[in-house]
């Protein structure tokens, strides 16, 4: 996650026309660059585009692609659409939450993962589907969860000794 710097915001704002229409593209750009929409960015955007802060807040809270709280390095979207649900997505989600020590979908304490449940990602033939960042993982099972998370967790952030534990767990599952 990058810390938000006001200078970068000003550079971003310069690229967009100062009209109401550029509100959503601008919010999308801020979201992709900084993983969330900080409060002061929304205030700055509102004054720059002459849109009331209420409207900006309304748009920012309406679309699920925008987030007002910092999200983790990797966004994990577990599809809970009908096809995925039938093929065991709730179990995959439960397993993932347990592995990441989360009670409900959210962000882990080390800011590595944000788990979200989504309705349908539009590839029901691959159910159950998990999307991590822009990669789609088809045919997920509970057994695959750990290995997948391990792949994304960067090595330096991993507590010492956990690697062996993960390998052991996987070995048990596969045997």
């Amino acid at each position: 996650m990058t810390d938000f710097e006001p200078v970068q915001l000003e550079a971003l704002l310069a690229d967009f026309e100062e009209t109401r229409e550029s509100l959503i593209p601008l919010l999308q750009e801020v979201q992709t660059q900084y993983c969330y929409l900080p409060e002061f960015a929304l205030r700055r955007i509102a004054s720059k585009l002459s849109v009331s802060l209420t409207d900006v807040y309304q748009v920012a809270t309406f679309y699920s692609c925008f987030s007002l709280v910092p999200v983790g390095k990797h966004v994990v979207q577990v599809c809970l659409g009908t096809a995925c649900h039938v093929r065991g997505a709730p179990r995959v989600l439960d397993r993932m939450l347990r592995d990441l020590k989360l009670g409900t979908p959210g962000t882990t304490q080390d800011m590595q993962f944000t788990v979200r449940s989504v309705r349908c990602v539009g590839c029901c033939g691959l159910a159950p589907v998990v999307r991590v960042d822009n990669n789609t993982h088809p045919n997920m099972t509970q057994a695959k969860v750990r290995g997948m998370l391990k792949k994304y967790r960067s090595k330096e952030d991993r507590p010492a000794g956990e690697a062996d534990e993960v390998d052991d767990a996987e070995a048990r599952v596969h045997s």
Partner: peptide
């Protein structure tokens, strides 16, 4: 324009920004 809607669907509510 001090109040507006926030969220959507079942979570839609009248709120003040932040």
């Amino acid at each position: 324009g001090a109040i507006g809607f926030a969220g959507r669907g079942a979570k839609r509510r009248v709120s003040r920004p932040f």
